[in-house]
Design a protein around this nucleic acid. Structure first.
Lengths: 207, 207
DNA sequence: CTCATTCCATGACGGTGTTATGTATAGCAC
DNA sequence: GTGCTATACATAACACCGTCATGGAATGAG
């Protein structure tokens, strides 16, 4: 019966939080609401506090990541598709480094725990297609391949984002790691290298 | 001429900070000094503030990590040594998860920028030995192999530490990733798998 | 011994997230 | 349409954080 909370305020707060994050501004409660004209209490009614806001921000990050991976077209070369997915993943992380780091800072707790699984599933599907197409060994486990691929890319990405490795380390090592993992999954080494090279260079220009 | 700062206070603060970190307690200035009997100003005289304390904590973490990797014995199988180094690395991270995460939270800025290079160098050396021993291709780049190995292990470790992947994912995937990378570096796939299996299981019991 | 210099303890300050209190407004019963 | 009620939201105080200005105590140099 009572007054209902406006979803516009919630969306605006979330949007502004993501924007402040990409702008490297510290996301503080008062600075956050300052821009929206809302009061500090709005964060509490909509998110229950700052931890809730962060949960929502991470959720939003994974949703956007999944959406972005969804735009990667499926070709007749599933290994190339895996590489393209990896490239899109890395490009997404580089486009909003602070958001990416926030996502994995406490990725375990999300509003919807399956949110992190959505981007991951794209990799699993591609790995399964590679197996069914005869590129990977018949007994290769798509989920295991996807996990190793993901973890390796994640580590490389984070080391670059934190400044431990130079920015060009991604281009220098990510395709090589991918090719090594795909070859281990059963693909011919040279063929894997060619597919990775083709897929990796594809969405590099994507914003 | 004046009173000289006691290194014992500095060491005690550092020790307590690391202890609070492993105990998952929030490392706050007042809580930190409470245990040592010192005052808040001690942190400022010794570290210049909390950021300086974190710098020192990260530094200490890398130093301990390098020391731990230094205890891994060198065998006549350099590929096995690489696996053993990886296992020791992961074990070290699992023993103090919060410290590990703090180390890489802003690993770019350390008191001594070369501190992060020390653990890394152990990997480079082992990769160079593998190349010189004919296990890796003569034109394989030890530094590139070490970088890819490190990044992959780092990503896998972080995903487990943050709860994204289950704890057993490390044992399930880390050796496989290592074997894939070593095979890509030129080692025979089956031989690499055997060496990795031998080296990985070695220091698993280390604390 | 003297004294200057530095360590460090005490307390105040601005900023943070949180929350108690009050107010206005949107939805439902009639 | 009118009145009631439950909820969204504003305001302001709170406890905590890191920081720093002040002052006293201790130490090493001469």
């Amino acid at each position: 019966m009572p007054r209902t909370a406006s979803p516009a305020v919630r969306a605006a707060l979330l949007e502004r939080a993501a924007e402040m994050l990409t702008r490297r501004e510290p996301v503080t409660l008062r600075a956050l609401v300052e821009g929206t004209g809302a009061s500090t209490m709005a964060v509490y009614t909509h998110f229950g506090g700052m931890p809730g806001l962060w949960r929502a921000v991470r959720q939003e990050g994974f949703t956007r990541l999944a959406a972005r991976l969804g735009t990667v077209p499926t070709s007749d070369d599933p290994v190339r598709d895996l590489a393209a997915l990896g490239a899109a993943y890395v490009a997404s992380a580089l486009a909003a480094p602070a958001l990416y780091r926030a996502m994995f800072d406490a990725a375990a707790e999300l509003e919807d725990p399956d949110a992190a699984a959505a981007p991951f599933q794209a990799l699993v599907d591609a790995a399964a297609r590679a197996r069914d197409a005869g590129r990977f060994a018949p007994d290769s486990d798509p989920e295991a391949v996807a996990t190793r691929y993901w973890a390796s890319g994640h580590g490389l990405t984070l080391l670059v984002l934190t400044g431990v490795l130079p920015a060009d380390a991604l281009a220098a090592h990510a395709p090589a790691v991918a090719a090594a993992l795909f070859a281990a999954a059963g693909d011919d080494a040279q063929r894997a290298a060619r597919s990775v090279s083709a897929g990796w260079s594809l969405p590099a220009s994507a914003e």
